[in-house]
Structures are given as C-alpha cells and as structure tokens.
C-alpha cells in the first residue's frame, strides 16, 4: 500500500501545491526515499519474525535443527529466476535514467514475467495448489513444517505479487510516456522494492531449503 503511495507521490508532487521546479522535485524525492527505507525497516520485522519462528520451531526432541525435504530442483530454479529478475529490474531503471525507453519497457516486461514464473513455481510446484498438475509435498496443516513453509513462502509470495502489480503499473504508465530521465521516482521505488523482496528470499531460501537435517515428507 505505502509503496504505491511513495512510489507515485513524487511524480505528481506539484499537485501538493508546491512548485514544479526540478529542485522541488529532488527535495520531494529525498523525502520519498527516506520514507521508502523506513518502510523497508518496518517490513524487515515481519520477515525476521517469520525466520525466528522457523528457527524456534524446526527443532526435534534432541535439539537437532530440522527442515522438511522440499523439492530442491524447484527451489533452485525459482531462486535463480528471482535473482535474474532483479538484474532486469535494475536494467529498467538504468535505461530510463539514460532515456532509453525501449529497453526500459522491455526490461520491465521481462522482470514481470520472471516474477510470475517464480510465483507459478511456488504456487504449483511447492504448494501443490493445482493437484492435477503437480501433487505438493506439504499441506498448511502439516504440523509446524506446513505452517512455517506456507507462512514464509506465503508472506513472501504476497510481496512478489504486489511487486508484479507495481511493475505492471509502472510499465503501463511508462508506455504513456510518464517517466523521464530526470523524473522517474516511481520506477526507482518499484525497483528498490523489487530488490528488497529479492533480498528477503536470499534469507528465506537457505532457511527453507538448506539449513538443518532433512526430514522426508514425500507423499
């Protein structure tokens, strides 16, 4: 919610009754940027809370750190896809800063597609939401394994989804010629949001897939 707020505010800053000079724009962008980083600091506490729950709960009677044996191939693929998407998001931002609209729009499309692949990978292959395509490993009600896996991936997927919506919005506005090399805070905000969501996954991936002794959960 507040990403959209902050992301678009500056592009219409003059509507706030301030002057429309580049200096005023930069001043507002400075504010927006701080707001964005504070928002990230706030969000970090959700993700830290989830990680804390994971490390607190996934311990067996002997005190051994555990993890459910999830599909390593799927996990690796979606992780690579998501990391790759961050490259294209960055490319989009650099392109608009250099006034290269074609690359800007195409990079956004590729980022959104990669993000969607990540989501589909999680929803179909990790969650098994469409059992006629793929039978999942875990259900949400499968003890603390199910609860934490769905809690962490669910919270992260929600952020990926909102990121894709924002990218779509930026792409649509960009196509209407909305951003320029001098004024593209909306693009910048979406980009750092996307990188942030990516960063979260860099912590979540090992916590879900790599750390601890595997515990077979096959069906």
């Amino acid at each position: 919610m507040s990403v959209a707020t902050l992301g678009h505010q500056a592009d219409h800053g003059h509507a706030d009754g301030h002057d429309d000079s580049q200096a005023a724009y930069l001043e507002r962008t400075r504010r927006n940027r701080l707001g964005m980083w504070l928002f990230f600091a706030s969000e970090a506490f959700i993700f830290i809370g989830l990680l804390a729950a994971r490390f607190y709960l996934w311990v067996d009677e002997g005190g051994q750190m555990m993890r459910p044996e999830l599909d390593q191939v799927v996990g690796l693929i979606v992780t690579v896809v998501l990391l790759l998407s961050s490259y294209f998001m960055n490319r989009a931002e650099v392109s608009i800063a250099n006034n290269n609209r074609r690359d800007f729009l195409w990079s956004l499309v590729i980022t959104a597609i990669l993000g969607t692949i990540f989501l589909v990978g999680v929803i179909i292959f990790e969650w098994g939401m469409l059992p006629f395509i793929f039978e999942g490993h875990l259900k949400p009600s499968d003890g603390v394994f199910g609860a934490v896996v769905f809690g962490m991936t669910g919270m992260h997927a929600l952020h990926v989804l909102s990121g894709i919506v924002l990218i779509g919005n930026v792409w649509w506005l960009g196509r209407k010629g909305h951003f320029s090399a001098e004024r593209h805070w909306g693009v910048e905000a979406t980009a750092i949001y996307w990188h942030y969501v990516d960063l979260v996954w860099i912590f979540f991936y090992p916590a879900l897939y790599l750390i601890g002794h595997a515990y077979g959960v096959g069906h």
Binding site: L38, E43, G143, V144, G146, A147, G151
Partner: peptide
C-alpha cells in the same frame, strides 16, 4: 514503525491457525 509488525504477525499466525489449520 518496527515493533507493530510483530503483533500483526503474531495475530496473523493465530488467524491462519484458526482458518487454515497452520499449527504454529
């Protein structure tokens, strides 16, 4: 700014435990 997220998270976890059986 920061701590409020944790009450949200803790209530969300109870909420999902009730609605989806996620047994945190």
């Amino acid at each position: 700014l920061t701590a409020t997220q944790l009450i949200g998270l803790s209530f969300l976890m109870v909420s999902t435990q009730r609605a989806l059986g996620m047994g945190f």
